[in-house]
């Protein structure tokens, strides 16, 4: 496609109405056919290669990103027509702030203009029933972009059929850190005490006083064990010491600081604090431009059963003919897995 702006004979033929109609029909058929099989619930794209594309076509870097946006629109259309519920795309990494300023500004403007356009014809997303979400540190965005982002999220909130996650300034490590932090916060904010007729502090005091009495009768020299526990001991035996650890604080005031037990934290708890909390598990992860790294994108989500595909093509070229093999191979593997599991189940039931 080096003759991007100088269409030749081949392009003239391909661009003629009958050829375009045939292409459109073929596309529709393929998408319709694919949606007859199992469909992934969540697909992620790492849109890599815009700049290399721009360099190889001798166009401005920012224009490369524009072409990348067109590819994104194409992919979204394919995904939503197939019935994919959630599409997550990596638009901007926190590391990308290190790029030349004009490029960062260009990307910000691109995002702003495109989101604004989406708002202008809000029907576009409504027709797909898609809601936009922006994942990441949106507080780092310039104020004008932030405003548009918030508006876009607000306007499409009502759509429930599918979700478009835009990771915009995002890194997965930052996401995991935030998830850990909010989990810790959740476990350190005391929940509203249940309104029972019994006072917890009175009960603890009672227990303490009976303990004290019994100890005094046994050995008056010994101190109470809870007071001479060093901090490190308390940490290592925390499972058993939970009620005791809040005792010193409970004694001096009425309000009892009873925290939820930290031992009840599970991977699901942290999952709930991820940006992608209510999305289905990630089924397909696609990275274009032949780089075989995850580059800080959805690490927590993709390290288990996700099928990861590294494709050679650059993102702006990405089209149905690249995505089709990925989808078909995924469906094929799914079928294969089912076939492998079936005899095992039979063995178990026998």
């Amino acid at each position: 496609m080096s003759d991007l702006y100088f269409p030749g004979i081949r392009n003239w033929i391909l661009g003629s109405p009958p050829a375009e109609m045939a292409k459109g029909w073929l596309r529709k058929t393929l998408i319709g056919a694919l949606s007859q099989g199992p469909i992934p619930g969540h697909v992620a794209f790492e849109m890599d290669g815009n700049r290399r594309y721009a360099r190889s076509h001798k166009i401005e870097t920012v224009e490369g990103h524009h072409h990348g946006f067109e590819a994104l629109a194409r992919v979204l259309e394919i995904c939503y027509n197939c019935g994919v519920k959630v599409v997550t795309v990596y638009a901007f990494s926190l590391e990308n702030f290190n790029r030349p300023k004009y490029e960062v500004d260009g990307l910000m403007q691109l995002a702003k203009v495109k989101l604004e356009q989406l708002m202008q014809h809000g029907e576009l997303l409504d027709r797909y029933g898609a809601s936009v979400r922006v994942l990441g540190r949106i507080d780092l965005l310039p104020p004008d972009v932030l405003e548009v982002v918030e508006q876009a999220i607000e306007n499409t909130k009502g759509n429930t059929k599918c979700i478009l996650n835009i990771c915009f300034p995002y890194t997965s490590r930052e996401e995991m850190t935030t998830a850990i932090k909010t989990t810790v916060e959740e476990y350190t904010t005391t929940p509203q005490p249940h309104s029972t007729p019994f006072s917890q502090s009175r009960i603890t005091q009672k227990i303490l006083s009976t303990q004290d009495k019994s100890k005094r009768t046994l050995a008056s020299i010994e101190e109470t064990p809870s007071s001479n526990l060093s901090d490190d001991d308390a940490v290592s035996t925390s499972t058993t010491l939970h009620s005791e650890s809040s005792v010193p604080r409970a004694g001096d005031s009425e309000k009892v600081a009873i925290y939820p037990n930290a031992e009840t934290i599970t991977p699901e708890t942290i999952d709930k604090h991820m940006y992608t909390a209510d999305c289905p598990p990630l089924d397909i992860f696609v990275r274009t431009s032949g780089v075989e790294r995850l580059s800080d994108f959805l690490l927590w989500q993709c390290h288990q059963d996700t099928h990861i595909f590294f494709l050679k093509c650059l993102w702006p070229e990405f089209n149905l003919r690249h995505f089709l093999p990925v989808l078909v191979e995924w469906q094929y593997r799914k079928k294969q897995n089912l076939r492998d599991e079936r005899p095992r189940r039979r063995v178990k039931s026998a």
Binding site: R173, Y187, V235, A262, P267, I270
Partner: peptide, 29 residues
């Protein structure tokens, strides 16, 4: 050593935070 180790770390951090030994802002990447 994958998810579970991160969960264990969160547990420890939550306990330390409950004991007021660390602040939420101390939890960084």
């Amino acid at each position: 050593d994958g998810r579970d180790s991160i969960v264990d770390l969160t547990k420890t951090l939550a306990e330390m935070s409950q004991r007021k030994k660390i602040d939420d802002t101390d939890i960084t990447t």
